[in-house]
Design a protein around this nucleic acid. Structure first.
Lengths: 202, 202
DNA sequence: AGGTCGAGCTACCCGAAGGTAGCCTTTCCT
DNA sequence: AGGAAAGGCTACCTTCGGGTAGCTCGACCT
């Protein structure tokens, strides 16, 4: 119970930090700003995080982990390569859109991370690309995809989706589910998949 | 001639600033660092730029202008929508890869720009999306593309290409020309274009 | 009731970096 | 050659913000 309260305070700090870093940038936000928004003072933050940079890592890393988990999960799921890719794109898009601020902060402030934190995150990203590339290769072997370069295509798909953090406005024209569906059909067309192979999913 | 020397000095400052901002981040680079790299001192920079933020705008804006010019130029060029889209993707990819550092700095430091500079750049970006969306609609009307949502597809294509600034390594496996060609074929497949319509280009 | 413990606050330090005032040197013109 | 102007440097100011030492107040236990 004591533990839970501690965890809750930590979460609240992160939540407010994400909001402000997203709106004003990392450097443009002071710890005093965050504290003020929470109705506390700066030393309070220091009882939960070792430094401003530590706070940054704490809000980036789990989001990257979620992205990786989305594609890994899809890769391990049953179905044809086409179905697995569909699922990967839908789920990854969901992560990007639901954690848009965290993603934005990460890409903007990568250079501000401590070297070890950066190394950990980079390892996750390499794994992400690796899993996605593998999925595309499986599809080529199975004769479902037609691609010159699976590695490049995985970067292209990853980019097309990640990029959504720059333009998506929650409450905009397209809802999260529509968007992730559209993203998936664009990705499938891009890899040369026959959409008919997906009848049951769509 | 005097003017030319002035312009040259300005260019050199920008060049070094791009390099350092790219490597160490905007906040992580001091004006003293830039001056030191050039073998001069900080006040020298102030004879060419009004502030650090001014320097930032000076290195972002022209790059965004080049991106817009690439698609506008392709849109105004002769040929079928398929051919025009192909050209737009190839040329835009070239801009992104050749000005990779500038692009990276811009996306990372958008929040640090002065409001007016940001407004100008945002106007350019809106125009970029508009031109690209228009190009896709033309293709749909002409029966060459098959798309649910031209606006979304233009964001997807723009994102897939812009994203290259995060992973491209000059001197890597793929050369600039190969990359832009591959990007174009992925984009064409994504919009449902028949590749055969491009025989003469490829 | 009194004491102890700990959470959070007040108040402060200090380094770093953007920006500037005023001097020096070099060059070019007269 | 002498002088003036311009370009760049030395030396400085000032602000701001990350980080911390030490106090206070409230809660809980005895």
């Amino acid at each position: 119970m004591r533990e839970e309260i501690l965890a809750y305070k930590r979460e609240r700090i992160l939540e407010e930090a994400v909001k402000l870093f997203y709106e004003r940038g990392f450097t443009g936000t002071t710890l005093d700003d965050i504290a003020a928004e929470l109705g506390v003072t700066k030393p309070f933050i220091y009882t939960h995080f070792r430094s401003k940079v530590d706070l940054l890592a704490a809000l980036c890393k789990p989001t990257i982990e979620m992205s990786l988990a989305a594609v890994e999960n899809a890769a391990a799921s049953p179905g044809t390569p086409t179905e697995r890719l569909h699922r990967a794109v839908v789920d990854f898009t969901r992560v990007v859109l639901s954690r848009q601020s965290n993603i934005a902060i990460y890409f903007r402030e990568e250079k501000s991370l401590a070297p070890e934190a950066l190394a950990e995150i980079n390892a996750l990203r390499r794994k992400f690309d690796h899993v996605l590339t593998r999925m595309l290769r499986d599809g080529i072997v199975a004769g479902e995809f037609e691609l010159d370069d699976a590695g490049l295509a995985s970067l292209a798909i990853g980019g097309m989706i990640s990029w959504a953090y720059t333009w998506h406005r929650p409450g905009g024209r397209l809802k999260l589910d529509d968007l992730s569906g559209e993203m998936a059909s664009m990705a499938l067309r891009m890899v040369g998949a026959r959409q008919t192979a997906l009848a049951k999913v769509e």
